[in-house]
Design a protein around this nucleic acid. Structure first.
Length: 501
DNA sequence: AAAAAAC
């Protein structure tokens, strides 16, 4: 079975072969022929199965006939997060390079005007997160009654995020003569109800679930005390011990505040780290993600915004700085590594108070996770506000304790001096935005170019790996100037301010 | 108990 057996147009086939693909994945082989015939499709598939191309390719073929009218997009794709939406846009650019299509990306956190101009011009493809889409519609800038194909992606995640009422509203705005392509990794009852309501005689395409926690992932628990400084130290030691195997890593935290704290602490300790969470400026989010993908950052500290769906090929390690409270999140998080049958490692830092969450995870995956270096029986957890030892008279070693003291001191200072710093932040915001903007555009262009250069090679992972620049190693001293990894000369505002509590 | 998503 090759792509040319599926009924796709020559333009699409040529872009697919330029991208280096010859053989469709099961979900693509199952969904594309039906989608091309105009049938509704219910695709049950996880990310990493080639799901995105399974709707992008037939849509491109179908869009070759006809033209978009102002404010009346011809197709609509709904995604739960901004990054996923941007990722789908990149797919349309990559596979639609032989088409002259107008693509509009409607996501929050970025300016309205540019999006509005694209709508005005007439969009063949509209990719959106629900909030911003409804916002445009309420402003009367968008008509949905010309939509011929509707895609609802990651439906179960939309459910988790409380988007279902929005999705229902949007579905009701679109003529029932449309074609609907509906994707979900799982089928909880609410989702089944939704499909019964909005799909007409769908063709069901289900791809076998990749083993819930793939065998290619080595999983370990790592004991730690419960103090933030203890956990940070545990993490640093772990990263250093793994250095030889560690190509790049995502480090998950449960809270956004923790993401920013850990991120700044890692920078202070000379780790080549970026951060990603939902309270960050959108431009910084995109840039961090792109820099991590391109190998310009070795570590990405992230909230669960990065746990699902993001296409980050070939992450060698996942660290859970916090044990996820929902057991399924554990599966999603560690699923960021060990992709495409590669070996991956995951380490979950656990304290005594995490025991019940660890138990729940082990129940879900149906196995005990081994301890990396002894279990929690030797760890004592002190309650109350006892601080790490730094007695007044005792001589203080330079090094860890000293630096952690600096961590805390800075946070305290930030909290108290926020008002004083505000003018400085305001003054610097503009140039930061400009620099970030240029960097982002460059990064995106690079990303697209490197995708296009993959011709002939079926293996993007290796190619990326080879092209990867020499990275900074932890412990190496860095010049003041490049302390703000990935941001040129300026420090973005979110790094200066302690995240909102 | 937290994250995500609109201003």
């Amino acid at each position: 079975m090759t792509f040319s057996d599926l009924g796709l147009s020559p333009k699409v086939l040529s872009a697919v072969s330029d991208a280096g693909y010859t053989k469709p994945t099961p979900i693509q082989a199952g969904a594309i022929p039906h989608a091309l015939l105009g049938k509704d499709v219910l695709g049950i598939a996880q990310t990493g199965t080639g799901k995105t191309a399974s709707f992008v390719l037939p849509m491109l073929t179908r869009l070759e006939k006809g033209r978009a009218r102002a404010r009346m997009p011809r197709t609509l794709i709904l995604e739960p997060t901004r990054e996923l939406a941007a990722q789908v846009e990149e797919n349309f650019i990559k596979y639609g390079k032989n088409h002259k299509l107008n693509i509009a990306l409607l996501i929050g956190g970025v300016s309205f005007d540019e999006q509005d101009k694209k709508l005005e011009r007439g969009a063949d493809v509209l990719i959106a997160t629900p909030g911003r889409l409804l916002d445009h519609r309420e402003r009367g800038k968008l008509l949905l009654n010309g939509v011929e194909i509707l895609v609802i992606d990651e439906a179960d995640r939309m459910l988790d995020m409380g988007f279902i009422p929005d999705i229902e509203r949007i579905c009701e705005m679109i003529p029932f003569t449309r074609q609907t392509l509906f994707f979900s990794a799982t089928m909880p009852p609410e989702i089944t109800k939704l499909t019964e309501k909005f799909l007409h005689a769908p063709v069901r395409v289900e791809v076998s679930k990749a083993a819930s926690t793939a065998t290619s992932i080595t999983q370990r628990l790592v004991k730690s005390g419960n103090k933030p400084w203890e956990k940070r130290e545990t993490l640093r030691n772990l990263i250093k011990a793994e250095d030889a195997d560690l190509k790049n890593a995502i480090i998950f935290c449960n809270r956004k505040v923790e993401v920013s704290e850990l991120f700044r602490s890692l920078l202070k300790h000379d780790f080549d780290a970026g951060a990603l969470h939902g309270d960050m400026d959108q431009r910084a989010r995109m840039q961090m993600l792109n820099n991590f993908r391109d190998g310009k950052l070795r570590y990405l500290v992230a909230s669960d915004v990065a746990a699902r769906g993001l296409d980050i090929p070939d992450v060698s390690h996942v660290f859970n700085y916090d044990v996820p409270i929902h057991a399924e999140d554990y599966v999603h998080r560690i699923g960021r590594t060990g992709r495409a049958g590669r070996a991956g490692k995951s380490f979950t830092i656990a304290t005594r108070s995490d025991t019940k969450y660890v138990d729940a995870i082990e129940r879900l995956i149906g196995a005990k996770i081994e301890w990396h270096d002894g279990d929690l029986s030797t760890v004592t957890e002190s309650e109350g506000e006892e601080q790490p030892r730094r007695g007044r008279g005792a001589p203080r070693r330079a090094g860890r304790n000293d630096e952690d003291r600096k961590d805390r001191g800075e946070r305290k200072k930030d909290r108290h001096a926020k008002r004083d710093e505000a003018p400085e932040i305001a003054r610097e915001e503009q140039p930061v935005a400009e620099v970030a903007d240029i960097a982002e555009r460059r990064a995106r262009k690079d990303a697209i170019r490197s995708e296009n250069e993959r011709k002939g090679s079926g293996n993007r992972h290796e190619q990326r790996g080879d092209a990867r620049p020499q990275r900074d190693r932890p412990g190496r001293h860095r010049e003041e100037d490049d302390a703000t990894v990935g941001f040129g000369d300026d420090v973005p505002a979110f790094m200066r301010i302690v995240a909102k509590v």
